[in-house]
């Protein structure tokens, strides 16, 4: 039986203080925006940071609710990976963010949480961020032979493989009915 509580153990400020005390110098940036606590840590420490947040008895961030990513193409460390953690024993919620450059990998959280499996695959699929030590890092939503990562900012909405020629009337006119049906006629 897992004990849960609907009382919020800490206010956002207290939670940030507590997290800062626990993580210390690992935190490069922290903020509270609309009551959401978020801390940013370097990508090489992300595993140990999430591990300590999970195993700390006071915080007890038992659930990795969500993993997502944001692309900032103008920055040197282009990709931001965002982990959302939830504690059910203390009704706490926070985000942990980390930044990586294009092609740089992030440690997989699959040893800590099983929910990381699919969510990391989704981030890999959509944003192209590889995860180290992931047991099965394949595309999950898009076809296996797809070459692009569509949630990157440079990706056009209609897709780069969109047959532009098909829109042009010339291209349509070139197709004779016989060519189209082949030998079947």
């Amino acid at each position: 039986m897992i004990e849960t509580s609907y009382e919020q153990k800490y206010t956002p400020d207290e939670l940030l203080g507590k997290v800062s005390g626990l993580l210390g110098s690992s935190i490069t940036r922290s903020e509270i925006y609309r009551d959401d606590v978020a801390v940013e840590v370097p990508s090489d420490r992300i595993f140990s940071v999430l591990n300590s947040l999970k195993s700390d008895p006071d915080l007890d961030m038992a659930m990795l609710v969500d993993i997502t990513s944001v692309h900032w193409p103008d920055d040197e460390l282009e990709f931001e990976v965002v982990y959302h953690l939830r504690s059910m024993s203390g009704n706490l919620f926070m985000a942990v963010k980390t930044r990586v450059a294009d092609g740089q990998s992030v440690a997989s959280m699959t040893p800590l949480w099983k929910s990381a499996d699919w969510q990391e695959r989704e981030v890999y699929d959509m944003m192209g961020i590889p995860f180290e030590n992931h047991p099965d890092l394949r595309r999950i939503l898009l076809p296996e032979d797809y070459q692009w990562h569509p949630l990157r900012k440079g990706f056009p909405l209609e897709g780069p493989d969109f047959p532009i020629d098909a829109h042009q009337t010339d291209a349509h006119n070139k197709v004779e009915p016989d060519d189209f049906w082949g030998d079947a006629s």
Binding site: V65, D66, T68, V70, H71, H84, K114, S115, D117, W118, Q119, E122
Partner: peptide
């Protein structure tokens, strides 16, 4: 700039 949908069906199906 970014909208991510945390979909319960997706995570539960995992």
């Amino acid at each position: 700039y970014r909208c991510h949908i945390r979909s319960p069906s997706f995570v539960n199906l995992g």
